[in-house]
């Protein structure tokens, strides 16, 4: 097994699938010759040629629409939207045209597309590079939403996404791209879409997180351990479909939970998770499920983003509110 960063693992997933399936295409702004602003596709054009890995003109809606048209012709496009804030330019193509293709055609056509985009805060990037827009996506019928937290999952989930016959919004936390290396198997393997992962077992409280916040939650769990609190941490990996069974099973054991997200507090993934916990596990709860999230403001400029984002200390504080209820 090789030691890979998450960006290496993402690149490796695309390489494996480009080699395995001639219908897989990779395109977007700057992804061809140079290999993307984060080098996620570095070397792929050289290996697979300009017909399969190519730069597009700078227009996100057209990148999305191109993917929809190519999907109808039997290709499996991996379309990169350079930064998460730029998806607003492509929302119709992603969230309407791709997401509704199967429904609108009664199953005659589908949109086997992966829309990859970097997102996530803490890197002092320019405005609209780091927002967490998964909430928009999970409210959109017809598109799956994946947020990996580590190199192994990123590769296995991306391969699953490329092979999926429905559109997938694949959100890559840019603060995780080169954060650490981990063992990643060579060649092909998949991590199933819609299955969460218990990354730390515990018995007193469940901390539900995804993306970078899984790691922040792990730090918080270590802090809680010092005070004798045993926290279970769930890495959701997929936000839609949501693995509510794993969450419910954990709460049946711990009877307490919090949800952590970088996104603004209101109406996001955390709100939906709590609603589903309410539907399926309320009698197992000893306290309300609380959210640790960003405030309901626009994502801040770089100066204050570290203060805005959830930290291990804030997660501990939220957990203690639930533990002491």
């Amino acid at each position: 097994m090789a030691q890979m960063t998450m960006i290496d693992a993402i690149r490796d997933a695309m390489r494996v699938e480009l080699a395995r399936d001639p219908n897989v295409l990779v395109f977007g702004e700057d992804v061809g010759h140079v290999g993307g602003v984060f080098r996620a596709t570095e070397g792929l054009q050289k290996e697979f040629g300009e017909q399969r890995v190519f730069d597009t003109p700078l227009a996100e809606s057209a990148i999305g629409g191109l993917a929809v048209g190519l999907g109808i012709q039997g290709f499996r496009p991996i379309a990169e939207i350079q930064f998460v804030g730029f998806i607003y330019e492509a929302l119709d193509q992603m969230f309407i045209q791709a997401a509704r293709m199967r429904y609108r055609s009664g199953g005659r056509y589908n949109a086997p597309i992966v829309f990859r985009t970097p997102f996530g805060g803490g890197v002092k990037a320019a405005e609209l590079h780091t927002d967490s827009l998964e909430g928009l996506a999970i409210q959109t019928p017809g598109i799956k939403v994946i947020v990996p937290s580590n190199p192994y999952d990123a590769k296995g989930l991306l391969i699953s996404a490329i092979r999926d016959n429905d559109p997938v919004f694949f959100m890559e936390h840019l603060n995780l791209y080169r954060a650490f290396r981990a063992e990643v198997p060579e060649g092909e393997y998949t991590v199933p879409i819609g299955k969460a992962n218990i990354v730390r077992e515990g018995k007193d409280i469940t901390i539900i997180a995804y993306g970078l916040m899984v790691h922040t939650a792990m730090k918080a769990a270590e802090e809680l351990e010092k005070n004798g609190v045993s926290a279970e941490v769930i890495d959701l990996r997929t936000l839609l479909p949501l693995d509510i069974d794993t969450i419910v099973a954990s709460i049946q054991k711990t009877n307490r939970a919090i949800v952590v997200q970088e996104a603004q507090k209101t109406s996001g993934a955390a709100a939906e998770i709590i609603a589903q916990i309410n539907e399926k596990a309320i009698l197992h709860l000893e306290a309300p499920v609380l959210r640790c999230a960003g405030p309901d403001t626009v994502y801040p400029f770089a100066q204050i983003e570290d203060a805005w984002l959830p930290t291990a200390a804030r997660i501990v504080k939220t957990a203690n509110q639930v533990l002491q209820f």
Partner: peptide, 14 residues
Amino acid sequence: GAQILHATGIGMGF
């Protein structure tokens, strides 16, 4: 106008 981009993608497919 959304279909204009689909035709563009289909043309690229051809």
